[in-house]
Design a protein around this nucleic acid. Sequence first.
DNA 1: TCAAATTACTTTGAATAACAAAGTATATCA
DNA 2: TGATATACTTTGTTATTCAAAGTAATTTGA
Lengths: 98, 98
Amino acid sequence: MTEEYLDPIIHQPVRTRIFACLASAEEVTFSYLKKTLGLSDGNLTTHMKKIMDAGYAEMKKDFVNNRPRTTYKLTRKGRRAFEVYLKRLRKIFDEIGK
Amino acid sequence: MTEEYLDPIIHQPVRTRIFACLASAEEVTFSYLKKTLGLSDGNLTTHMKKIMDAGYAEMKKDFVNNRPRTTYKLTRKGRRAFEVYLKRLRKIFDEIGK
DNA sequence: TCAAATTACTTTGAATAACAAAGTATATCA
DNA sequence: TGATATACTTTGTTATTCAAAGTAATTTGA
């Protein structure tokens, strides 16, 4: 059980939900994440920064109707990390049933 | 998805594993947790303190072979909180598959 | 038309959390 | 009896989390 450590970048109340969102789609906008997860702007920015600093997601900026739009998507590395995370979580909980 | 917040007492890399351990047994000793999860003494103490402060576990102290022994067990509230946690986690991940 | 509100973020600072090193205390071992 | 081990707790530093305030462009309403 010891080595089944849970990636602290992913295993955090807000970020786990962000990852679930990102994993379920190709890419997701800042506004969508904010609304869907009910986060403050600052909170979302800093969490995304942390995820990107880990190399788990990347950002794209463009304009739609003269408004800035920031889009995030998981990198290959991020998707892989999330898979490993899910596998470990499952293993940990499977052991409860002994 | 918004209201499916994950209890920060439980959703933390070390504590999730502590909860899995506690949930799988009636009660668990300090030494066992420490060894099984590979934690430093201080780290384990502070995490357990946090879990107890939330009313999720309780501590029993006795002596075995003239040695102090600290035993932890989930309270009813703690077990319930863990169940809710697991249900929410599952829901969040189920949504990935859309 | 211009002031106010809205959208879309980022920066910053204060509160909280996480962790290990050092500390306390008893027991065993050589 | 000095050294090592077991069983913890306290303390202090560093890292993390979050929202308030800040920036900038845009739309809306009087």
